[in-house]
Design a protein around this nucleic acid. Structure first.
Lengths: 132, 132
DNA sequence: CCGAATCCAAATAGATACTG
DNA sequence: CAGTATCTATTTGGATTCGG
């Protein structure tokens, strides 16, 4: 394992404004394959590990663990262990996570509305460029 | 090269709702390291290749080319070649791209506001977990 | 049930050199 | 100026096995 966590201030070395770097770094973190999806799922309330796994469907145990750890590290979700048998772990958005949920949903809304346009644009592009 | 372009409908095989998959796929595409940053930069108006490169600062020529191609394929930016010497190529948001610019800016706004909180959360987490 | 550890394949990103 | 080509390093992700 050892994800060797990245620092939100690390990325993008040179002439950028601080703002630009900060935005870029946060988005690089939150814009991985699963984070926004999980944040979106956690919006309505807390969820258990395998519950999230089932809802997403295409994620491996490993990636779910890694992604949740990352979100926890960023202060976006909390992880609560119930010492029962069998064990039970719940993940829930923090206040910070909830504040992120809103712009994420806005983006999700956009994606739902415009996904057909994007698919159409891709088909046009591919048709034009497949030896055209 | 050969990026072997991904289809927005490709991703996430199983039990998800169509919506969930669509959102996930669009976000996976747009949520790479540079796309949102470029969309953000292109909001105010068209830019030339090296202009974008300088503004971002930490991007390689190759990745800028690939990212712009992807955005063009998705119908989010247009690429206009001016047949002058030296050559000049301008990139500009399409209407679809402009409609995406708004939620992207919302996310950027969030990132700017909360970046210090995230950095702080990361420090706390790292301190707690560095052999704690 | 909720993970951690390990191994391995594939996708991604950077450096460099070259071209119209 | 705006790319393309190639080669390599790094990152990422899945499959599997193991443990509390």
């Amino acid at each position: 394992m050892k994800p060797e966590h990245t620092d939100v201030t690390a990325h993008a070395p040179q002439h950028q404004s601080e703002d630009c770097r900060a935005v870029s770094a946060v988005l690089a973190r939150v814009g991985d394959k699963w984070s926004v999806l999980i944040i979106s799922l956690l919006g309505p309330g807390p969820r258990r590990f395998n519950e999230i796994k089932r809802m997403i469907g295409g994620i491996s145990q490993r990636m779910l663990t890694l992604t949740l750890r990352g979100l926890e590290r960023d202060g976006l979700v909390t992880r609560t262990v119930f010492p029962t048998i069998p064990p039970r772990v719940e993940y829930e958005l923090t206040d910070l996570g909830k504040s992120l949920w809103q712009p994420v949903e806005a983006l999700g809304e956009w994606a739902r509305r415009h996904q057909p346009e994007i698919a159409a644009a891709q088909r046009r592009y591919d048709k034009r460029t497949e030896q055209g």
